[in-house]
Design a protein around this nucleic acid. Sequence first.
DNA 1: CTGGCAAAATTTGTATGCAATCTAAGCATA
DNA 2: TATGCTTAGATTGCATACAAATTTTGCCAG
Lengths: 237, 237
Amino acid sequence: MAYNMTQDTQPISANAAPQPAAEPRLLAAEVVERLRDLIVQGELAPGVKLNERVLCERLRTSRTPVREAIKYLASEGLVELLPNRGAIVTPITAATVREMFVLLSALEALAGELACANASDTDIAEIRALHYQMLVHHARGELAQYFRYNQEIHLHLVESTGNATLTNTYRGLNAHVRRARYMANFSRERWDHAVEEHEKILDALVRRDGVLLPVLLRSHLNNKMLVVLEELGQQTG
Amino acid sequence: MAYNMTQDTQPISANAAPQPAAEPRLLAAEVVERLRDLIVQGELAPGVKLNERVLCERLRTSRTPVREAIKYLASEGLVELLPNRGAIVTPITAATVREMFVLLSALEALAGELACANASDTDIAEIRALHYQMLVHHARGELAQYFRYNQEIHLHLVESTGNATLTNTYRGLNAHVRRARYMANFSRERWDHAVEEHEKILDALVRRDGVLLPVLLRSHLNNKMLVVLEELGQQTG
DNA sequence: CTGGCAAAATTTGTATGCAATCTAAGCATA
DNA sequence: TATGCTTAGATTGCATACAAATTTTGCCAG
């Protein structure tokens, strides 16, 4: 899909200055990125109202780009439009998180299958490197950094399929889910277990085992879901 | 995700008039639906430029709602934004169609699995009814009507999972793919084969065979993809 | 005090104005 | 004729103005 509004499609040139002028950017596009960051980072918490005037002042622009950005994000599902009453950050419920993880599991399983068939050796080497980097932070007990590389690995895996539609869909769902900041109740035991799963995942990818990898990923994601749902203080029913 | 802009969330009341006033609607929301229809129906063909002034006249509104609707549809991927140059209907390529079908296959397979576990008997009965209605049009050689009920069956199956996130994602991809109007080269042979597949699909659903149904659906979708790609006159590589 | 109504203030939704950019049309030149 | 520059026109992007709806405030009755 064509998220031209928020994705840099301009190839980065190694040369000095082939094109003199910079790529034209829409103000609304910048507002989209800024707002999305605020929402995903949790600075704009689920359920809070988006006041146009306040956002205009914060982002130093007029209402038009802000309103256009809100419409864009509404389509992404990160905000909800309430006719004549503006917009709010889409609330998080255990039910929607569960739904999204069910979907994410299937997407990652598909990605695993496709990656085994289509990923380049360079892709796999890069994922291996990210894996080791993740292990470094696991060893040091640096949870935030661990999560960062964890995310990188999963995203890289999906991207290595070469299926841009899959990647965009995955990104969108991931942004949603990440709002449920699930780092808190991650016991050392569970953490170690997740790392073990990652070891097996990497191994299956390196061997390009297109049958096993999807199974491992699905199970891995399912465990992640349990952690998140527990964080939300809900049943897993 | 919260497509509040385009989806009627108000429950239809059987009583006379519990709420006196009608549900407040955004002009931009109506433009979204109208534009999306025009694009999916192919009246606005892939690649054509969206002239704001022309759309304003056609839809009897000012530029603001039109521009906001375009942003919304850009996020859906149905239009592409070209900074300072407006927007175009997202072009269709064999590559993106293939990508989308790969994803759709996985989504329907997942839906099949979930449906076997979660669908109500009423859901299944309704799908069976739609199936027979489809057979009527197949018997009469009414291709357009056949396709309509075909779509209905697939959508109903997905909806019967109770997973709204899955349903929304499926709808979005489906809208994209439907722009490749693939009714043309559908030989009677292939048509008959598709119907046979549907017979097996219905049977597996009725028996709630959560292992077989996903396999059947994936294969069915894959065949559909081949038809579409052939229509686009491309290799299936 | 509490609850409810009425008016003021805020906020949203839509239309319009203006500047910047892009498109094309016309003309000159090779 | 083909090519490139210049300029007029059209179109987009952003800001702002105005109207409709909502929310808040203040007041009064109970």
